[in-house]
């Protein structure tokens, strides 16, 4: 057996482990996966051959490592998701309104946007935007990825809001126009507030989809949760711990979001 596994010998190993994480991180951010993980496999593999007691302590240390590694990723995943959802909300609302009220010229534009964007895999959109945008402006992979996801989500959200707007009874627009409201004001103050309420259940679903799609920004080197789970899994050789913790986070975040949206839904329930 490797002598380093016994007693005090282990401490230096852990400390070098952390040191390496620190020194590795900037390299990782440059988005070159693979090579760094390999260098750790040998060292970490040895942690499997230990007594029960030691195994527990190693496991808890591993958990600590996993958490330490994943937590920054949670921030990135949450930010990417929220930015994408917000961008998608703006695009989706505008596109839905244009689709329904845009007339002969703008309505087809909105339809094409929705059809094309939904037909293309999200990863492809991420790549296209990353390479196209980075040609034009200096944008971080993080922002570029979030925008790409928002752009994709906008197409799905436009369908959600289109359905919601169409299920607002037509009498609402007629009554709004009858008191002299302009079309724009009627859409903004009468139709959209009702459509948004009607859209909450479908929108909750979109929330979970965008959260899960946020893993895809790893293809352009954004160190979000899943990416970090991969690294730390390779390091600790505890894939279940690493990915399980990541999965637990996705579940918790989804549950929190559905609760919040469920509350909103109940508060703004309107019986038509």
């Amino acid at each position: 057996m490797d002598p380093r596994l016994h007693g005090d010998d282990k401490k230096p190993e852990i400390s070098t482990f952390y040191d390496s994480i620190k020194t590795e991180t900037p390299q990782e951010k440059s988005g070159r996966p693979g090579q760094d993980e390999a260098s750790f496999v040998g060292a970490s593999a040895t942690t499997f051959h230990v007594t029960h007691q030691e195994a527990m302590s190693v496991l808890s240390r591993s958990l600590l490592t996993v958490l330490q590694y994943l937590i920054p990723g949670i921030g990135i995943t949450v930010s990417v998701t929220l930015i994408a959802l917000t961008i998608g909300l703006v695009i989706g609302t505008v596109m839905a309104v244009l689709r329904i009220y845009g007339g002969r010229f703008l309505s087809p534009v909105a339809a094409v946007y929705s059809i094309v964007v939904r037909a293309v895999p999200v990863v492809v959109i991420i790549f296209i935007l990353f390479f196209v945008i980075s040609e034009l402006v200096d944008l971080s992979p993080f922002l570029s990825g979030a925008i790409a996801l928002g752009f994709a989500s906008g197409a799905y959200q436009s369908e959600i809001f289109r359905g919601a707007i169409l299920s607002v009874p037509p009498g609402q627009m007629i009554a709004a126009r009858a008191i002299g409201m302009s079309r724009f004001t009627a859409i903004r103050s009468i139709i959209l507030p009702q459509a948004v309420r009607l859209a909450i259940p479908a929108w909750s679903n979109e929330f979970t989809l965008v959260l899960k799609d946020s893993t895809l920004v790893y293809v352009i080197g954004v160190p979000e949760l899943l990416r970090r789970a991969q690294w730390v899994s390779a390091r600790t050789l505890e894939p279940f711990l690493a990915f399980g913790t990541a999965a637990a986070f996705y579940i918790v975040f989804t549950l929190l979001a559905s609760r919040l949206l469920g509350t909103l839904e109940r508060r703004y329930k309107i019986i038509m």
């Binding site: 009874p169 009498g171 609402q172 007629i174 009554a175 709004a176 126009r177 009858a178 008191i179 002299g180 409201m181 302009s182 009468i190 507030p193 009702q194 309420r197 703004y268 309107i270 019986i271 038509m272």
Partner: peptide, 20 residues
């Protein structure tokens, strides 16, 4: 037309109140 409609009140068979 918006100016005109402000001066003409309309009451509908189906009420059409703003539900929200």
């Amino acid at each position: 037309v918006n100016r005109i409609r402000q001066r003409i009140g309309m009451v509908f068979q189906e009420f059409n109140l703003f539900n929200h």
